[in-house]
């Protein structure tokens, strides 16, 4: 059988919110390592990849590797039934037709049990090679969310330019141009609230704001976001989640014809 109990159940609610608008259905792959998911959006422009390590659960039991084929909208609806301070347990048999979500209140006075039918999903797994990125930008996740929101008022795309001066996000539309420049903070240690840039080569790439905005739904999961940018390659946007794992998004760039 498979059983994973997450004491901080609100994390599962947040992971759900971070993927449900991008992906309609996906396999949650459960192994001894933990729970992972990789799925593209329906237009094959972006990809989400997440890992919830087994040691982030208490307890975690996985007798046999299984894939839980899940409709995200249905699971998101069920997750909304959990309170923020509930403990969430995910449970299924070795050859599952359905999955059970159990929500326990902290004082154990209320226990909710939701059973959901599984789907047979023939998913395509993409191999993402290790890449040497031209620039790796770390910044407060809330700052990145704000930039995406503000520039969405100006245009459909954002041009991310990174050089020795810092990083610039710019958008252009019918009404004009918007530019937001961030300088690297002078700090020795990388801390929350800081902008840090690891620059190998100056780089400039354009991305659809619509998708970056979907990615920022992960903001409640982490204080910092990392953007890994490389010439003419997809950008990797990563939110590391304390004590359990990460959610990463990849987005193909827009390229001049």
């Amino acid at each position: 059988m498979f059983e994973a109990r997450l004491v901080q159940g609100s994390l599962m609610k947040k992971f759900m919110e971070a993927i449900k608008d991008l992906v309609k259905e996906a396999n949650w792959d459960c192994t001894g390592t933990g729970i992972s998911l990789q799925a593209m959006d329906t237009s094959h422009v972006s990809l989400v990849s997440l890992l919830l390590r087994s040691d982030g659960f208490d307890p975690y039991r996985c007798d046999r590797n299984i894939s839980l084929g899940i409709n995200m909208e249905s699971m998101a609806k069920i997750m909304k039934c959990a309170s923020n301070d509930d403990v969430i347990t995910i449970r299924s048999e070795d050859h599952p037709d359905n999955v059970t979500f159990v929500f326990e209140s902290p004082n154990q006075e209320k226990v909710c049990d939701y059973e959901m039918k599984l789907m047979d999903i023939d998913s395509e797994h993409l191999g993402i090679p290790d890449t040497e990125y031209d620039a790796i930008i770390s910044m407060p996740a809330s700052e990145f969310q704000r930039i995406c929101r503000d520039l969405s008022n100006i245009g459909d795309s954002v041009k991310i330019t990174c050089n020795k001066d810092g990083v610039q996000f710019s958008a252009q539309g019918d009404t004009g141009i918007g530019k937001i420049a961030l300088k690297q903070n002078a700090v020795i240690d990388k801390e929350d609230g800081q902008v840090s840039i690891e620059l190998n080569d100056p780089v400039s790439l354009t991305f659809a704001l619509r998708y970056l905005t979907f990615f920022t739904k992960a903001t409640p999961l982490a204080s910092t976001v990392t953007l890994s940018v490389s010439a003419k390659n997809p950008v990797a946007v990563e939110y590391r989640v304390d004590d359990i794992g990460y959610i990463r998004y990849y987005l193909a760039p827009k390229i001049e014809e």
């Binding site: 593209m40 094959h44 422009v45 993409l126 191999g127 993402i128 659809a208 990849y250 193909a252 827009k254």
Partner: peptide
């Protein structure tokens, strides 16, 4: 205007 690439232009299905 720049055109949007497909992710599968970059990553192969494994």
């Amino acid at each position: 205007t720049p055109i949007q690439n497909d992710l599968q232009e970059f990553y192969a299905i494994v």
